Amino acid sequence: MLQFEVNDMTCGHCVGAVTAAVKRVAPEAVVAIDLPQHCVRVEGVCDAGAVELAIREAGYSPSRKA
């Protein structure tokens, strides 16, 4: 599982935008977002770089969590 902290994700619109961005690069991914914790979890994907880039291109600032 990949996990990112996305502190500039603040509302339901942000959740939708981040989910859509991840699904564009990894349609098979399972995306779980904890908005109060600013946490994005992605399962079923190996390429963390592609997911991180997709989130950045959607206008957000992800940082990878261990």
Results as ranks from 00 to 15, higher is better:
residue 5 E to T: 05
residue 47 D to L: 00
residue 59 G to S: 07
residue 41 R to D: 01
residue 31 V to N: 15
residue 37 Q to E: 12
residue 60 Y to G: 02
residue 15 V to N: 11
residue 5 E to Y: 05
residue 65 K to T: 04
residue 9 M to C: 13
residue 46 C to V: 10
residue 32 A to N: 13
residue 33 I to L: 14
residue 13 H to V: 00
residue 54 A to N: 03
residue 15 V to P: 13
residue 56 R to D: 01
residue 58 A to R: 00
residue 63 S to G: 00
residue 53 L to C: 04
residue 18 V to W: 12
residue 42 V to S: 14
residue 1 M to N: 00
residue 7 N to A: 13
residue 47 D to Y: 02
residue 59 G to P: 02
residue 7 N to Y: 07
residue 17 A to E: 14
residue 62 P to N: 08
residue 59 G to A: 05
residue 12 G to I: 01
residue 65 K to A: 10
residue 42 V to I: 13
residue 60 Y to K: 02
residue 30 V to D: 09
residue 35 L to Q: 12
residue 46 C to W: 08
residue 55 I to N: 11
residue 47 D to R: 03
residue 54 A to K: 01
residue 65 K to N: 07
residue 49 G to V: 00
residue 51 V to S: 08
residue 16 G to C: 07
residue 46 C to E: 14
residue 32 A to K: 12
residue 6 V to L: 08
residue 13 H to M: 10
residue 30 V to K: 04
residue 64 R to F: 02
residue 20 A to Y: 03
residue 47 D to F: 08
residue 26 A to K: 02
residue 20 A to D: 13
residue 21 A to G: 02
residue 1 M to S: 09
residue 23 K to P: 05
residue 25 V to F: 08
residue 12 G to L: 02
residue 11 C to V: 03
residue 24 R to W: 04
residue 41 R to C: 06
residue 5 E to G: 00
residue 52 E to G: 14
residue 26 A to G: 09
residue 43 E to D: 15
residue 38 H to N: 09
residue 58 A to W: 06
residue 23 K to N: 06
residue 23 K to A: 12
residue 49 G to Y: 03
residue 44 G to Q: 05
residue 9 M to F: 14
residue 62 P to W: 04
residue 48 A to C: 09
residue 3 Q to F: 01
residue 11 C to P: 05
residue 33 I to E: 11
residue 39 C to G: 11
residue 55 I to L: 10
residue 5 E to W: 02
residue 62 P to C: 11
residue 15 V to A: 11
residue 8 D to G: 13
residue 66 A to C: 08
